[in-house]
């Protein structure tokens, strides 16, 4: 049973090995190596433009790495059969076709991976969108779009959640809702990898942090280690890490 593995001897669910992406002469992601372990929330922190989204897209096989690889339980994402049942992802919640209702959006997505129809109703309940399920997504606020995006990620009842900036544009209630959701998910022995540029949010959500800047790994440590380092706050640690432009030369 997947939920019974104790967290202390957690498996590496995601293995990122020397992942690199170059666009012409620009290096967006530079030989990134880290692992994401089971049963906890791993925050993926970095300033805007640090390469977080590019990394996320490479994890999902949407962008082809220039070098390196990203593996889920030893397999590239593209080799997972019916991947939604294993990995749930939220990249851009506003990426829906505006003329389709929320329920129908989830219905076609469920069909791609032979996910039973009732799961659509279940996830609509989980994210609190049942009353808006038959509205076209054109009418959705950003908060509702994020909820629909989360519903899509949860659709296959996955063991791994991969979320790119899920709290962007959410009101405090929505932020708290996502935080609780991610904590609960990890507490069930599942795995969460969530990117953010808000260290305050990561301080209360994540157990472990992977920090990148200009496409490079700056830190990979448990949250407690960041704060233990002297008396500085996580915020200070973040700025110390990300402003260290000297490491770039």
């Amino acid at each position: 049973m997947r939920h019974t593995h104790p967290a202390q001897d957690a498996r590496h669910v995601i293995d990122v090995r020397r992942l690199t992406k170059r666009y012409g002469r620009t290096t967006a992601v530079d030989a990134l190596t880290f692992t994401v372990r089971q049963g906890r929330v791993t925050g993926f922190l970095g300033p805007n433009g640090a390469g977080k989204s590019t990394t996320m897209r490479m994890l999902l096989g949407l962008d082809r790495p220039t070098h390196g690889e990203a593996l889920f339980d030893g397999k590239p994402y593209c080799d997972l059969p019916e991947p939604l049942r294993h990995v749930g992802a939220l990249l851009d919640a506003t990426a829906t076709q505006a003329g389709r209702t929320a329920r129908n959006h989830l219905t076609w997505l469920a069909r791609t991976n032979r996910i039973p129809r009732r799961r659509v109703e279940e996830v609509l309940d989980v994210v609190g969108l049942h009353s808006a399920a038959d509205q076209r997504t054109r009418t959705f606020s950003l908060g509702m779009a994020q909820r629909l995006g989360i519903a899509a990620a949860l659709l296959g009842d996955p063991e791994v959640l991969l979320l790119d900036e899920p709290v962007n544009g959410l009101d405090p209630e929505g932020v708290r809702w996502i935080r609780t959701l991610l904590r609960t998910f990890a507490a069930e022995g599942r795995t969460v990898f969530v990117s953010s540029h808000l260290m305050s949010e990561m301080a209360v959500t994540a157990d472990h942090l992977v920090v990148i800047g200009r496409g490079r790994l700056l830190a990979d440590a448990d949250l407690s280690e960041f704060v233990r380092d002297g008396e500085e706050s996580l915020e200070d640690a973040f700025f110390r890490l990300t402003s260290g432009g000297g490491s770039d030369a």
């Binding site: 897209r57 999902l60 096989g61 949407l62 994402y77 593209c78 997972l80 991947p83 939604l84 992802a89 990249l91 851009d92 506003t94 990426a95 829906t96 076709q97 505006a98 997505l109 791609t112 991976n113 899509a152």
Partner: peptide
Amino acid sequence: CGEHGSGLLRLSLSATPN
């Protein structure tokens, strides 16, 4: 093109990576 324009293609391809 409706998928390209809206960004839905990424969701489609994450559901069907091949």
